[in-house]
Amino acid sequence: MNLLFEGQTCYLRSLTVEDAEDMVQLLLRNRGYWSVYEPSHRDSYFTPAIQREKIRESIYQARENREYSVGIFEHNTNKLIGHISVYSVKRMPFLSALVGYSIDEVYVGKGIATEAVKLMAVFGFEQLRLHRIEAYVSPDNIGSIRVLEKTGFRQEGLLKQFLYINGEWKDHYYYAMVEQEF
């Protein structure tokens, strides 16, 4: 399934194996910036071969209706500036999924992440017919909290020692939006 969603500040499209090198460059540019909120990766993760394999896996997951991962691209340059996924898709009795995203540090604060999350919410609620979309976010990640709240997500709780990042267990807020709020 090839996805394409047009926004005002960006567009989202399915990644292809031809995007692997651009993904490596995005990951390398943001390795330090993203490492504050995400688990660290081995050096091999930052190679075209591994990224091609991850893209192939995301294509397979989309065919199986389990996960939909897309790149976030800048309109003017067609440059890959982030990625976003609706993943862990569960069918009845849940009809839910998680959303996760990362934006190139240079593009933070420009409304791109907010627009990307809105576009994926439209996809999740209207095309996947989900009842609920959830997100986890570090209490320290003020920018991402703002993105979720501007998009209509509500904080539902705190998950204690939820994710292992840089040698320690970190708490995360639990956010969600249900279809009636969308």
Rank of each mutant, 00 (worst) to 15 (best):
H41D: 11
R42P: 04
D43R: 04
Y45L: 10
F46H: 04
F46D: 03
T47L: 06
A49T: 15
A49E: 15
I50H: 11
Q51Y: 05
R52K: 14
E53I: 08
K54T: 08
R56N: 09
S58A: 07
I59S: 10
Q61F: 11
A62I: 10
A62N: 10
E64N: 15
N65Y: 12
N65G: 10
R66N: 13
E67D: 15
Y68S: 06
S69N: 14
V70E: 05
G71I: 03
F73K: 07
E74K: 14
E74R: 14
E74G: 06
H75T: 13
T77N: 08
T77I: 07
K79Q: 15
L80W: 06
I81D: 04
S85T: 11
V86P: 01
Y87N: 13
Y87A: 08
Y87D: 09
Y87W: 13
Y87L: 12
S88I: 02
V89G: 00
V89T: 02
K90T: 12
R91N: 13
M92E: 14
F94G: 05
F94P: 09
L95R: 12
L95W: 03
A97L: 04
A97F: 01
L98P: 00
S102V: 08
S102I: 05
S102Q: 13
I103A: 02
E105R: 13
K110M: 09
K110Y: 07
G111F: 03
I112T: 05
I112G: 03
I112R: 01
T114I: 08
T114Q: 03
A116F: 02
V117E: 00
V117A: 00
K118I: 08
K118T: 07
L119N: 04
M120C: 11
A121T: 14
A121D: 11
V122R: 13
F123Q: 04
F125Y: 08
L128C: 09
L128P: 07
L128Q: 04
H131S: 10
H131T: 07
R132N: 11
I133T: 05
Y136H: 15
Y136A: 11
V137G: 01
V137R: 00
S138W: 00
P139T: 07
N141Q: 01
G143Y: 02
I145P: 02
R146N: 09
R146H: 11
